[in-house]
Every structure is written in structure tokens, then in C-alpha cells.
Design a binder for these strands. Structure first.
Length: 968
DNA sequence: ACCGCCGGGTGCC
DNA sequence: ACCGCCGGGTGCC
């Protein structure tokens, strides 16, 4: 299999950017004429590698032409330098802009002539601080600092010298956040009494981890009762989230790092001042751990703070009840009250109309009697809720139409609205009033496709029927792209992919000013250059919320995109974020870290599962017990196992002697997988996989063997990491020497080393056209046709299940294995014993998955009591709380994968004690795997971001693992 | 710009 | 005077 031309080209383009980083260190090049200054050939490297830049030196220059521009600066204010190559008077021109992006002037031409080359070729980033900005009518001084890669330093210095500029050390009046030489008079930045110490990577990491701890504050512990329209009663920590979010949305307070001084608003980071009040950040980051109910919190927010601090209207008696009864949650109430009342009345009218016009279109909902309690799901309550999501949710990415149809089928109200012209019409009238006279009403929620149906469910579940919330799912080929229609909804739900697809393409989503935009799994936009991120940043809204469980996933860099989305000035421009926070922090500057902490504290609410509310843990999950059940193989099974084990030991032992374990890693894994499979069931070892790679035959045969190998590697679950990027495999491909890497990683290696690229694992030849991808999972139930027999493990499982059924037939169980064929064998046993079950594995499309999950989670009598689950199926969001028993049929390589799997039922919503049984075959590779688990856990506990294992360490660790596994 | 620079006007005291 | 000096015009890149 090889790739088409377009792929190649795209890749080449990608690589040309990446590869610019590897550049010549030959500084002699700088001795040539200016025009021969070496180019980094990389327009973005200085940006991307911001953290690794060093300070070359500083220089006092002049800004001229002030009188032609409106931008002003203060004393000690930061300014940005920007090349202006198309200036008609001087192609070397360099503009000077203030923090707001307004032009202040130009760099004087002699200096600009020197700078232009350096800036254009990205040899240094030049930053300015104006020491005396005030009251300069024509020119002003500027202190320039030059930052770049170490290897470019001498060249830049020489180049500047040639033009008569000498970069010096730090000048007296200079300002900035360069830690040790920060000489700011402002108290916030007083030099520490002790000499500034560069923090180690580890210290920094620790500080990082602490960032999100201990965010307890007054305003985050206050609780707020949700609007009547919220069906579910909130847990205390959710009421806290609600109070915090409402107060942020209605807040008028200055964003972090802004102060009011005289008649100006003053940014204490950049010293920028402006007359107009900077917009308050009406939103933030809700970074609660998974399972704490971020979705519910947002739904409560939408309903509780719908307009002007007032809740979404419910039923008929809207004005009298909800609006007046609730104390206004708005911060400043001065002088506006009469106007507001007027406004409210209008809303009420519109809602009256809305209610009557839409009443007929809504599906019949549960007739409410009394307050609904948020019992932690399960039986009775579930039973009372007629689930409308009966239609299978087709979320297939390929077939948009299907999905849309399925979704509309799910929400009849929406469907009818789109089809029936009359109803749309009436809602038009209503909404015109809403929009033009008063305010935006629509909340836009953007989420990954995988959780779209979850949002729909949650709205169904948590919104009271007579609240009549309009929800439109903007998804599928038939989606309604009329901005007027969309802005009449209360909630529009869409996915990142749809948003990105629409972007720049007459996107209605980008034409509307939203009341509120919510990003679910907000870390998705962490790459500032991704189209997705740009699409999100170009949305227009009053209030912005980011939901994420992992606010800083890899590093501080990831935060910028979120801050920019939150419209946090001046960070919307990446330069100011870099200069004031990111670089200082990564350089170990304490002040920078303090500022970062202050910032996070201001905009983030984060609770973990262990956070306490009023002295009690935020989540009181029932207990979880893990048992290991040892299995003794039957004599027949043992005999087959021993035979395979001896064979395997011979093979692997030979590799050890030859020192070629890693060269034959795929073969080693094959042996191990077969042993593991034999622990489960003898039929799992497919005869087709028994051939070895040596003595390769026809190309077709070779190809097939390789494909089998990559399948094996993937199925084995062992090689989850690519040994080039040391991250989890992304689009895995296999080389001819049978090693598996991310497609991107190995392609980079091939391009870099061409034409003689070698495999990073075994130094064998690798060629692009030899790479093979793993073909789509064909349902190869290879040896499934054999006559069915049980196995020791299956017997043990069935024994446990039957015993459980006798005790309590309603208890539900999850049966987990990494081998889908094993799950199929178990199916037969389950059928024989009359168990009802459903199944979830990687080969199922979204529609089938949703179907399986929903039928299992239901508590009807005919709902299956068992879920067969393949270990890696389903993302972290998978919720299987209906089960309280987990049977792990075979140990995973990575203990974290097991944990994650257990958490699918041991999470918010679980009311029963969870009992987990791990089946482990005595005297087998499985027992040895448990030993490795402990080592891996230790490793994970001590692993810091900075000191990831090197690839050679990983190799050695793998060799050691193999030794342990096969007792060699 | 309360500068520098340009270039025209001007030229004993 | 192929100078100096004066004072008006002028002024980013």
C-alpha cells in the first residue's frame, strides 16, 4: 500500500516547516554580506519554540513619526514591532504598535534597515519597551531586546554591528519580565530579596500541578439554587459551580491585571492604559474532573442565568414567579430597574406565545408531580422517565444524513420545527422581538461528535418539560443554515468538525452574536495553528465557557488558545501572553508564576473527585473492591500452553543471545499474545498467524504477514507508544522490518534521512512505499467456526455470573477482554446459560455503540444484564453505571487502561458497591504481567513531564519487560 | 521640533 | 561669496 500524490505533497509541506528547526550552526555564514544572512527557512519556529529562546542583548532605539498615528504609550509600556515590507517609502520599514495593536510610529530608518533582515529571517524576535512614552510628540525612545536561538546569537550581533549598532547588556531603564533584571518600581514586581533562582523542570512541574489545586475561595463556595426549569436537583458542588458561573457572567469586574487609575484603565503587565473599560471576562474555565457533572452545571447555567440575571421562564406564571421571586443576580442594578422590568415583560410575552405555539409540537413528557429529585440514576427513577432516545443514534461520520435523521427522530420538536413552515413562522415573530429589541438568546455548544448524543440526553433529562427550551442540533447535511433560524433557538448544539467545516464558507455560526458559547472538551483547541482553533476563535459571543478535565494538558502553551477564546485582554494577541506569562514562567521567574496563578485562580473552577465541600468529599462514590481470581488451567489447556511456551522461549531466547530482541520485537509480541490468548481459550490462537517472517516469500505473502503483524501488535495492546514520539500511536503503520510507528513520525524520519533512512528500532532500511497501514477491522472470526468448547476461564466466569444471578438477578455486569474473539466465545456460553447481553467493541460504528450503551443502561426488565466490552472501546466518557460488577478476563499491559475501564462504572451515578474480578491464570504470562503492572505504576507515579524516558531507556525497559514476561 | 536639516537670501560697520 | 550667517520651511517610513 502506498499513498497518493496529494498525501506526499501535504506531508512535504508539513515537513518543510518542521524541518526548519534543524538548521545550520555554521555562524561563519554571518560574515557574508547582509543579503546572505542565513535563513531559518522557517517562519514559525521562533513562535513555536518560544521557550527555548535566549536573550541576545538589548539596544536603545527610536520610534519616529508619532504624530501620524493614534496609538499612544505610557512610560515603561510594552510595544510590538512589526515588519512592513510593503511600505512604499522603505521596504525595510518596521512598525511599532502598542498593546492594543494601534500603530504608534516607526522604527527610525537606519535601525529599521538593520532589523529588517533579522526579523524577516526570524533570526531573532525583537521586542520593545518604551521607557518614557508619555508626552513625546514626535519621537520616543524604545528599548529593544533581541531573543533568539543560541546558534543565531553571534550572527545577529555581528549583523547589527555592521550597521553600527551594538547590542549591549541590560540597560538601566529597561523593563521586562526577564526575572533577574526586572527593575520595576511597582511593588508587584519588586525583585525578590534572594537572588532569582532558576527553577528546575521538576520544581516547575510541581508548581504547575499546584496551579489547579487549592482554588478554594469565597466566591467559589457560595451555592446557588438553580432555576425552576432545571428538573434535577443539584449536588452541592454543582450549586457552587452554578453560583460561580452566574456571578462571572453577570460580573462587571475588571479582567485580571487591570486596574483603574485616574481616568484610565491600566494593565499592570504591559503598562498599557486605555480610557475605555476593558470588557469583563464573562465566562471562564470549568475544569472539574470527569464525572462531577460539568454538563449538568452548564445546563443549569443556561436555564438560571438566561437573561439579565433572570432564569429561563417556566410555565404560564413566568413573570410573577420566576422572575420576581428570584433575587436579581446582576451585579450593578443602578438606575436600570425600570428599563429592565420593561424588558422582562416583553420576554414574558414572547414566551407566552412561544409556549402556546410550541406546545403541540413537543413530545409528551413526563407529567411532573412535585419536585423531581436527582437520585443517582438507577432503577425507579430511570423507569419513570420515558426515554425518547429510542431511535438509534446514528453518529456515523460517513453518513451525515442518517445521523441527522436519527437525531431529528430523537427530538421530534426539532424535527417538526424544521419541517413545518407555520411553526417556524410564529417563532420568527417572537424572536425578532428578542433579538432586535433586547438581547441575544442563543447558547452555542460545541463538542466532539462522540459526546453530542450525551448532551442531547442530558438536556432531555435535566430540563423540565414545561420550560420549553428550544434546542437545535446543527449537524448533518440537512442542517438549517439560516442565521435567523439559528439565533431563535435557545441552544444550538454542534461539533468542532462541523464548525470547522463551515468556517470561511458562509458559516452561519460565525455570523451570529451568541449569548454564550460553550466549548466542551475545550483542550481540543489547544493547537493555536489548527483550523479548528481559528474557527472557534472567530466566534462572536457575550459569554464564553470552556469545559475541560485537563486544562493544561502538556504545557503552559496550551492555555493561550483558551485565554484568547475567553477574550482575555491583552492575551488575545499571543505576543503579550508570551512576554508577560509564558516566557517568564518557563524561565523560572517567580513573578511570572505568581501572575499565572492569579490568572488561573481568577478564571477557573476546578474540583477533583477528592475535593471537599463542607467537609465532605464532593463525590461520595460507593466502595470499589478489586479481587484477583486465580485460574488453574485444565490439563489439556496446560499442555497446549506449555508447548507454545517452550517454543516461544526457544525463539525469544535465541533473540536474546543474538541481541536482536528489539529487531524481532513483533515476533516476540506475537509469542506473548499467543500465550495470553491461550490463557483465555485455546481457540483464540488463529492458525493463520503462526508463520514467522524469516525466509520471506512472494511480496503478497510478505504483505499479508506484515498486516497480520501490525494487527497483532495493535491487538496486543503492548505497543501503545510510538518509539519515535514516545506518545501513543497515531495512525499506526508497520515497516517492512515489522516495527510499528505513528505514520507521521516515521515519515519524518524517512524525509530527514533520505535517501538512506533507517528504522529507529533495528536500523533496517525503511522506505515510504513499504509502509503498511492497518486495514479496517474485517470481522475475521478466523477460527470461530470450530466446534464450541468452554475453557477454564470461561467456566470460572460463568460460575461467578450464575452465582450472582441466584443472589440478585438485577445486578448488571461488564465483561472485559482485549480479545474480541474471546468475547465472541463468551457470548456462546452466555447464551447457553440464558443470560441477556449486549456488546461494545471497536468494530462497531457510533450508531451501534450508542444503541448498545443505551439498552444496557436502561433498567427495564428486558434490558440486558451483561455488557461485553473490549478493553479499549469507548472514550473516557463511556458511562456504564448500570453495572456494578466488572469481570476483567485478561490483564492489560497498561494498568492505567484497566483503571480507566473500571471507572466506566465506578463514577458519578453509581449507587452500588462495585466489585471487580480480575481473572489471572496461575503460572503463566498473565501472572508475570501483574508484576510489570507494579513497576509501571511506580514509573507513572514518579513520571514528570520534563523527564520522560528517553527512547533508549524505553528500549531497555522493554527488553527487561520481555525477560520478566517469559521468565528468561 | 525650545531640535536638526535643507536651501534661499544675503553679505562692512 | 567656490564662504558664513540668517531665518523660514519643514519634519516617519
Amino acid at each position: 500500500m502506498s499513498w497518493g500524490f496529494t498525501r506526499h505533497d501535504a506531508l512535504r509541506r508539513f515537513l518543510s516547516v518542521q524541518y526548519g528547526r534543524v538548521r545550520s550552526h555554521n555562524s561563519n555564514l554571518f560574515d557574508m554580506e547582509p543579503d546572505n544572512l542565513p535563513s531559518t527557512n522557517d517562519s514559525s519556529s521562533a513562535e513555536e519554540d518560544f521557550d527555548s529562546l535566549v536573550l541576545f542583548g538589548m539596544l536603545r532605539g527610536n520610534v519616529v513619526g508619532l504624530r501620524y498615528y493614534t496609538g499612544v504609550v505610557n512610560n515603561n509600556e510594552m510595544v510590538a514591532l512589526q515588519r512592513e515590507p510593503n511600505n512604499p517609502y522603505d521596504r525595510n520599514a518596521v512598525k511599532v504598535n502598542n498593546v492594543n495593536g494601534e500603530q504608534v510610529g516607526h522604527i527610525k530608518k537606519e535601525l529599521a534597515a538593520a532589523l529588517a533582515q533579522i526579523m524577516d529571517r526570524n533570526l531573532a524576535k525583537v521586542e520593545g519597551i518604551v521607557p518614557y512614552g508619555a508626552q513625546n510628540a514626535f519621537t520616543m525612545p524604545v528599548n529593544l531586546s533581541f531573543w533568539g536561538r543560541e546558534e543565531n546569537k553571534q550572527g545577529v550581533l555581528d549583523h547589527m554591528k555592521k550597521y553600527g549598532f551594538k547590542l549591549g547588556p541590560i540597560q538601566q531603564s529597561s523593563q521586562g519580565f526577564q526575572g533577574s533584571f526586572s527593575q520595576r518600581a511597582h511593588s508587584q514586581y519588586n525583585a525578590p530579596s534572594l537572588p532569582a533562582m532558576q527553577m528546575t523542570t521538576e520544581q516547575l512541574k510541581t508548581e504547575f500541578d499546584k496551579l489547579f489545586e487549592d482554588l478554594r475561595e469565597e466566591d467559589k463556595t457560595r451555592e446557588l439554587e438553580p432555576s425552576e426549569a432545571v428538573e434535577t436537583s443539584l449536588l452541592p458542588h454543582q450549586k457552587q459551580a452554578l453560583a460561580w458561573m452566574v456571578s462571572r457572567e453577570n460580573s462587571n469586574e475588571l479582567p485580571p491585571f487591570w486596574e483603574q487609575r485616574n481616568n484610565f484603565y491600566y494593565n499592570t503587565l504591559t503598562n498599557f492604559a486605555i480610557k475605555e473599560k476593558p470588557d469583563s471576562v464573562k465566562g471562564g474555565i470549568l475544569a472539574d474532573d470527569m464525572g462531577l457533572g460539568k454538563t449538568l452545571s452548564i445546563i443549569a447555567l443556561i436555564l438560571t442565568n438566561f437573561y439579565d440575571g433572570k432564569p429561563f421562564p417556566v410555565g404560564k406564571d413566568i413573570y410573577g414567579k420566576s422572575s420576581l421571586q428570584d433575587k436579581s443576580l446582576v451585579e450593578d442594578d443602578s438606575g436600570k430597574s425600570s428599563k429592565k422590568k420593561h424588558a422582562m415583560r416583553k420576554i414574558d410575552e414572547t414566551h407566552e406565545i412561544a409556549s402556546s405555539s410550541k406546545g403541540e409540537t413537543r413530545p409528551k413528557r413526563r407529567q411532573k408531580a412535585g419536585k423531581a429529585k436527582y437520585t443517582l440514576s438507577d432503577s425507579e427513577e430511570e423507569e419513570r422517565i420515558p426515554r425518547k432516545v429510542k431511535a438509534p443514534l446514528a453518529c456515523s461520520v460517513v453518513d451525515d444524513d442518517d445521523f441527522a435523521t436519527a437525531l431529528f427522530g430523537t427530538l421530534p420538536a426539532v424535527k417538526k420545527k424544521t419541517k413545518k413552515k407555520g411553526i417556524v413562522k410564529s417563532s420568527t415573530d417572537i424572536s425578532t422581538k428578542y433579538d432586535t429589541q433586547m438581547h441575544q438568546r442563543t447558547t452555542l455548544i460545541i463538542c466532539p461528535l462522540s459526546v453530542l448524543s450525551n448532551w442531547i440526553d442530558q438536556f432531555e433529562q435535566h430540563v423540565k418539560a414545561d420550560a420549553k427550551l428550544n434546542i437545535y442540533i446543527y449537524y448533518g447535511a440537512e442542517r438549517n443554515k439560516n442565521p435567523d433560524f439559528l439565533s431563535k433557538q435557545d441552544v444550538v448544539l454542534t461539533t468542532y468538525n462541523v464548525l470547522t467545516h463551515d468556517y470561511g464558507n458562509e458559516s452561519p455560526l460565525h455570523k451570529i452574536r451568541w449569548l454564550r458559547v460553550v466549548l466542551d472538551e475545550g483542550h481540543i483547541i489547544r493547537n493555536p495553528n489548527a483550523q479548528q482553533t481559528k474557527a472557534v476563535h472567530s466566534l462572536d459571543s457575550e459569554r464564553q465557557w470552556v469545559l475541560t478535565g485537563t486544562p493544561i494538558q502538556n504545557s503552559l502553551k496550551d492555555l493561550w488558545s483558551i485565554l484568547s477564546f475567553l477574550k482575555l485582554k491583552p492575551f488575545t494577541d499571543r505576543e503579550w501572553w508570551h512576554r508577560t506569562i509564558q516566557r517568564p514562567v518557563s524561565m523560572g521567574d517567580q513573578g511570572g508564576l505568581r501572575r499565572l496563578q492569579a490568572l488561573i485562580k481568577n478564571i477557573t473552577l476546578r474540583r477533583t473527585k477528592t475535593t471537599k465541600v463542607n467537609g465532605k468529599p464532593v463525590l461520595q462514590l460507593p466502595e470499589r473492591k478489586v479481587y484477583i481470581q486465580h485460574i488453574k488451567l485444565s490439563p489439556e489447556e496446560r499442555q497446549i500452553y506449555e508447548t507454545m511456551q517452550n517454543e516461544g522461549k526457544n525463539i525469544i531466547g535465541r533473540y536474546f543471545n543474538e541481541g536482536t530482541v528489539l529487531t524481532h520485537y513483533a515476533d516476540v509480541l506475537a509469542v506473548l499474545v499467543r500465550l495470553r490468548q491461550l490463557c483465555c481459550h485455546p481457540h483464540l490462537v488463529p492458525t493463520s498467524l503462526s508463520g514467522s517472517l524469516s525466509g520471506s516469500s512472494t511480496p503478497d505473502e510478505l504483505r499479508e504477514k506484515l498486516v497480520n503483524k501490525i494487527k497483532l501488535v495493535l491487538i496486543s495492546g503492548s505497543d501503545e507508544e510510538c518509539s519515535i514520539c514516545l506518545d501513543s500511536l497515531n495512525m499506526p503503520v508497520i515497516t517492512r522490518c515489522a516495527h510499528v510507528f505513528c505514520k507521521e513520525c516515521i515519515c519524518q524520519v524517512i524525509y530527514r534521512k533520505q535517501p538512506n533512512a533507517k528504522c529507529p528500532m533495528c536500523r533496517g532500511e525503511v522506505r515510504l512505499e513499504h509502509l503498511l497501514e492497518c486495514p479496517e477491522e474485517e470481522s475475521d472470526m478466523s477460527d470461530h467456526e470450530q466446534k464450541w468448547i468452554s475453557s477454564s476461564k470461561i467456566n470460572a466466569l460463568m460460575h461467578a455470573l450464575t452465582e450472582q444471578r441466584n443472589k440478585d438477578p438485577r445486578v448488571k455486569s461488564i465483561i472485559v477482554s482485549q480479545f474480541t474473539t474471546f468475547l465472541s466465545l463468551i457470548e456462546t456460553a452466555l447464551r447457553e446459560s440464558g443470560f441477556t447481553f449486549t456488546r461494545l467493541d471497536g468494530s462497531m460504528n457510533q450508531k451501534k455503540r450508542t444503541e448498545a450503551i443505551q439498552s444496557f443502561q436502561r433498567s427495564h426488565n428486558d434490558s440486558p444484564t451483561i455488557m461485553l466490552l473490549s478493553l479499549k472501546a469507548g472514550g473516557v466518557g463511556l458511562n456504564l453505571t448500570a453495572a456494578s460488577r466488572v469481570y476483567l478476563m485478561d490483564p492489560a499491559w497498561n494498568p492505567a487502561a484497566e483503571e480507566q475501564c473500571f471507572d466506566r462504572c465506578h463514577r458519578l451515578g453509581q449507587t452500588k458497591e462495585v466489585i471487580i474480578t480480575k481473572f489471572v491464570v496461575k503460572n503463566s504470562v498473565e501472572e508475570n504481567m501483574l508484576k510489570i503492572h507494579n513497576k509501571k505504576r511506580e514509573l507513572a507515579a514518579g513520571a514528570f513531564e520534563g523527564n520522560k524516558q528517553t527512547s533508549s531507556e524505553i528500549k531497555q525497559a522493554r527488553i527487561n519487560e520481555i525477560r520478566t514476561l517469559v521468565d528468561l
